[in-house]
Simulated scan of single mutants.
Amino acid sequence: MATYHPDFIVATADKVYLIETKGDDKVDDVNVRQKQTATVEWIKKINALKPEDRMNRTWEYVLVGES
């Protein structure tokens, strides 16, 4: 079991974004895509919680490449 630490966490009034940054040459890497899939599944579980248990915000995952 691995731990995950996103590059950035950005909270707005209604959302929490987990942001992962990668070079364009790494965006399609199998490990990056596996991490993305696992994180999206985790976020679905967070968003299924009662709003007060998720800071009254919807959570999202964002993968940002160089370009």
Rank of each mutant, 00 (worst) to 15 (best):
M1R: 06
A2G: 09
T3R: 15
T3L: 12
Y4H: 13
Y4T: 06
Y4S: 07
Y4I: 10
Y4L: 07
Y4V: 12
Y4N: 06
H5A: 02
H5V: 13
H5C: 04
P6T: 03
P6K: 01
P6F: 00
D7N: 13
F8N: 00
I9K: 07
I9E: 08
I9F: 01
I9M: 05
A11E: 14
A11W: 02
A11H: 08
T12S: 12
T12H: 06
A13Y: 13
A13F: 06
A13E: 15
D14G: 01
D14L: 03
V16I: 09
V16K: 01
V16F: 02
V16Q: 02
V16D: 02
Y17N: 05
Y17C: 07
Y17Q: 04
L18I: 09
L18V: 08
I19V: 14
E20M: 10
E20Y: 08
E20D: 11
T21K: 12
T21F: 08
K22A: 05
K22L: 04
K22S: 04
G23S: 09
G23F: 05
D24Q: 12
D24W: 06
D24N: 14
D25I: 14
D25W: 15
K26E: 13
K26H: 11
V27Y: 09
V30T: 15
V30P: 10
V30W: 05
V30G: 00
V30S: 09
V30H: 13
N31T: 12
V32G: 11
V32Y: 13
V32N: 06
V32M: 14
V32P: 15
R33D: 11
R33E: 13
R33H: 04
Q34V: 12
Q34I: 12
Q34N: 14
Q34W: 06
Q36T: 14
Q36E: 15
T37S: 14
A38T: 00
A38P: 03
A38Y: 04
A38L: 07
T39P: 02
T39D: 04
V40Q: 10
V40I: 14
V40K: 07
V40N: 05
V40D: 08
V40W: 07
E41Q: 14
W42I: 00
W42E: 01
I43G: 09
I43R: 02
I43K: 03
K44H: 13
K44T: 10
K44L: 08
K44N: 12
I46W: 00
I46R: 03
N47P: 08
N47Q: 02
N47D: 02
A48N: 12
L49N: 05
L49M: 06
L49W: 00
L49F: 00
L49Y: 00
K50V: 03
K50Y: 05
K50P: 09
K50Q: 06
K50T: 00
P51L: 01
P51K: 00
P51D: 00
E52Y: 11
E52A: 04
E52I: 05
D53N: 13
M55Y: 09
N56G: 01
R57F: 03
T58F: 05
T58M: 09
W59A: 03
W59K: 02
E60A: 15
Y61K: 03
Y61W: 11
Y61F: 15
V62A: 13
L63M: 14
L63I: 12
L63V: 14
V64Y: 10
V64K: 13
V64M: 15
V64Q: 11
G65W: 05
G65M: 07
E66H: 11
S67E: 11
